[in-house]
Design a protein around this nucleic acid. Structure first.
Length: 475
RNA sequence: GGCCCCUUCGUCUAGUGGUUCAGGAUAUCUGGUUCUCAUCCAGAAGAUCGCGGGUUCGAAUCCCGCAGGGGUCACCA
């Protein structure tokens, strides 16, 4: 049997990392088993729907390389994949239940329901609709909610992540199948869809765990065999107690794209948030994850989303890229000053900052001085612990000597190193003094790659020009 | 309140009765790599394995109880 998994978001906004991890694990299971991954949109709540969400969700998944084999934009193998386009299907299945006397029309108003609920809370009892099940319900005409006539019992089941589970019969109730607006509830629609779309593994997050007995009850009523169930623990917010939410500042996945995070890093990070292969490996390629992933090795407890760890992992992935690849990915991140620079030059710059990058949006601040005219910044000397101790005249003298030496230099790394070292000896200077001074003069930046490499890239003409500017500023 | 889930360094985790008075990673700190930033390397600090009983020669690992945290009890998913 072909393994088929699905990710079924509701289009209520952007996708954040917590949601993406659920999609990732479902996708990985499908890929691992040469199966299919289905994207289904659960748009059964018109009130919560946010325009543009579907497109945004698809963009997010696409960027990460989580490709769906079937979805709203593919041919309709077992679609449509938008629940709002499947209303007749749900109605047909609802009628099957009605004909078996397993569903009935809900006669109560919301005010009455609230009253029942309030009473249950006051009595410190769980609210169970079935305690109020009407004796002679009217024929359902679609204008009221349709409820399942549940069969309460104790359920035990196996969860591919959590293991063996059990729940008491108070977990079973007459939940709503079709709302009075004609749309199905999630509880009903997803079961029908998972069956019709031949889903073999239902992978979703923890908040559904207490609903599972109700789903099992519905499967029985429908005469369907339940799929393999896998419940993922939460991705936690910073406090480590509650699941990560947009309120905690959980970013849109596409925000990470804009900051220059690599999809490989996001996936690596998310996969190892709650999963590991039992070895001490931390960095996994997407293929390795697909090969090694096991639901049974997924953690049962929630894991805090730690941006710092993600940052480290992203830097690690950036460092592992070869230069051409990094160059391609950097395309949209260059500072304006680099607009006229050629590819060759930009690649040289990139090779110098590669190991310094944690995310690609840092490129402008790290590379601007390679491209733009720099103004002399006196604080760079005044705040430097070596240079601030020297008189201006001394600095000027040292820099003038350096200028003479660089004037004669061919600006190859070898010649730069040789001449700067000679100068250290002849002037009896510490590297901390000479190198700092030349670095400050030629970059006018608080930090830069190593001096010799930087000079070699900046070039003779520009380096000398900047030294001259520094010299006149010291006068 | 009922039902259910969870609990190892700050964080992600290894660990399924004995070679673990708990290993790795990250974060932090220190030192080194001719200057800065970063990388890299070396090192430090950091978890009485939620608590209390029990079983056992021996428990983070098995059993019981408790506590803390979380979920759910919607015409939301």
């Amino acid at each position: 049997m072909t393994v088929r998994t699905r990710f079924a978001p509701s289009p209520t906004g952007y996708l954040h990392v917590g949601g993406v991890r659920t999609a990732l694990f479902a996708w990985v299971i499908a890929k691992k088993n040469n199966g299919k991954f289905i994207l289904r949109i659960e748009d059964t709540d018109k009130n919560r729907e946010v325009a543009g969400s579907i497109d945004h969700i698809m963009k997010s998944l696409s960027w990460l390389g989580i490709k769906w084999d079937e979805g709203p934009d593919t041919s309709n193998y077992l679609g449509p994949y938008l629940q709002s386009e499947r209303l007749p299907i749900y109605k047909t299945w609802a009628e099957k239940l009605i004909s078996k006397d397993l569903a009935y029309s809900d006669p109560y108003t919301t005010a009455q329901l609230d009253e029942f609920r309030q009473k249950a809370i006051t009595n410190k009892k769980p609210f169970l609709f079935r305690d109020h099940r009407p004796k002679n319900p009217t024929t359902w005409d679609g204008s009221t909610a349709l409820r399942l006539k549940s069969a309460p019992k104790i359920y035990t089941w196996h969860d591919a992540v959590m293991g063996n589970m059990q729940a008491g019969d108070s977990a079973i109730d007459d939940f709503i199948l079709i709302k009075s607006d004609g749309y199905p509830t999630y509880n009903f629609a997803h079961i029908i869809d998972d069956y019709l779309m031949e889903i073999t593994h239902v992978i979703r997050s923890q908040e559904f765990i207490s609903s599972i007995p109700r789903y099992l009850n519905l499967y029985e009523a429908l005469g369907l065999a339940p799929p393999i169930i896998a419940t993922l623990p939460y991705v936690m917010g910073p406090d480590g107690k509650k699941k990560l939410s947009k309120r905690d500042g959980a970013k849109d996945v596409l925000d990470y794209q804009a900051l220059g995070y690599l999809p490989e890093a996001i996936i690596n990070f998310l996969a190892t948030l709650g999963w590991n292969d039992g070895t001490e490996q931390e960095i996994f390629s997407i293929d390795e994850i697909i090969n090694k992933f096991e639901l049974s090795r997924v953690q049962n407890s929630g894991a805090v989303f730690d941006e710092k760890r993600l940052l480290w992992m992203n830097g690690s992935w950036i460092r592992s890229l070869d230069l051409d690849d990094l160059y391609q990915r950097s395309d949209k991140f260059w500072p304006e000053s680099a607009n006229n620079a050629d590819e060759q030059y930009k690649k040289k710059v990139l090779s110098l900052v590669q190991e310094r990058l944690k995310y690609l949006a840092e490129i402008p601040q790290l590379t601007n001085f390679f491209f733009a005219d720099q103004k002399v910044d006196p604080s760079l000397i005044n705040d430097n612990k070596y240079l601030s101790k020297l008189e201006k005249s001394e600095l000027k003298n040292i820099l003038s000597q350096a200028r003479i030496e660089l004037e004669a230099c061919d600006f190859s790394s070898v010649d730069l190193t040789r001449r700067l070292n000679q100068l250290l000896e002849s002037l009896k200077l510490k590297p901390a003094v000479l190198f700092s001074l030349v670095r400050v003069a030629t970059t006018q930046a608080p930090a830069s790659p190593a001096l010799v490499e930087s000079l070699a890239v900046i070039g003779k003409e520009l380096s000398l020009k900047r030294i001259d500017q520094q010299l006149s500023a010291l006068s």
